[in-house]
Design a binder for these strands. Structure first.
Length: 275
DNA sequence: AGAGATACCTGGGAGC
DNA sequence: TGCTCCCAGGTATCTC
């Protein structure tokens, strides 16, 4: 389930594997995922060279040499691979971009929540309009305690959903929001507007530490996620609280509880995460 | 405006 | 064994 660390790892691998290569043929096997895939067929991608791969939140953009880009989002089960043409198509592979030297860039998504489309970028380095409205990147200096504190004022919704709000800060999904709040000793159901500035200092610092460590370990694999080389994310071994309902808290030994917030399960320690 | 609910989708697991 | 139901989850869209 790609959140920021997973998207970052995929992006780095695609940058190594795709930049400089030229698309020679496009195949689409499924009409639509989140949006229709059919425009890829008539977009004139043949002959276009990939000049860069960039990440913004959970999105990746592969820049093309004509001012357009391929916008990708992995939903919760998106996987990309660059493989030899002899490997047979897997059941949920929806798009093949054949490359000039014989490889194929393949886009797979079991649950079809992914996005893969051609977008206009106008000038190099710009982000497509589809990404306007995204909040700050959590690993840049823009993500400060002051910023988080200001954004959270007069917000009555719970702090966990607030951290997962992409208009505030991008790339933090259920796993990393859960882990960040455990590390910060903050109860996930607390109203965001109740956070103090010192608590925001802790949240920012823990979110950064956890995301950076997860990137280092190749992300978190729960069920579907794999990196471009097929490897699994090893941060799963360092998860402290996510998915540990009914087991002892690794910090104090109390039984981990789980509640539903915004329709998502949220594990927390009832003893060391204060309300 | 913000927040909650719902739909989208498939596979895996639980329960009967 | 086979059926039904629920759950996982990012995002868009709807409603209140």
């Amino acid at each position: 389930m790609p959140e920021l660390p997973e998207a970052e790892n995929i992006g780095r691998a695609l940058k190594r594997g795709l930049v400089g290569r030229t698309i020679v043929k496009v195949e689409v096997f499924t009409p639509a995922m989140r949006t229709s895939l059919l425009p890829l067929l008539s977009a004139g991608l043949e002959g276009r060279r990939i000049t860069d791969v960039r990440r913004r939140g959970r999105y990746l953009v592969a820049d093309l040499d004509d001012g357009r880009g391929l916008l990708m989002h992995f939903g919760m089960s998106g996987v990309v691979r660059i493989e030899d043409a002899r490997v047979p198509r897997r059941r949920h592979e929806h798009v093949f971009l054949h490359l000039a030297d014989g490889g194929i860039f393949r886009f797979e998504c079991t649950r079809r929540f992914s996005l893969f489309e051609v977008v206009d970028l106008n000038s190099p380095g710009r982000w497509p309009v589809q990404l306007a409205g995204l909040g700050v990147e959590p690993l840049t200096p823009d993500f400060t305690a002051d910023y988080l504190f200001k954004c959270s004022r007069r917000r009555s919704g719970c702090v966990k959903n607030f951290l997962m709000d992409n208009a505030v800060v991008v790339g933090i999904g259920n796993i990393y929001a859960t882990e960040t709040l455990f590390a910060s000793r903050i109860h996930p159901a607390r109203p965001a507007g109740d956070l103090t500035l010192p608590e925001c200092v802790v949240v920012v610092s823990e979110a950064r530490r956890i995301l950076a460590r997860a990137i280092e370990l190749g992300g978190t694999t729960i069920s579907d996620f794999q990196n471009v080389d097929g490897s699994e994310g090893k941060f799963v071994q360092e998860l402290q609280i996510y998915g540990r309902k009914g087991r002892p808290c690794p910090r104090c030994g109390a039984v981990v509880e789980c509640l539903r917030l915004g329709g998502r399960s949220s594990c927390y320690c009832p003893r060391c995460q204060s309300r």
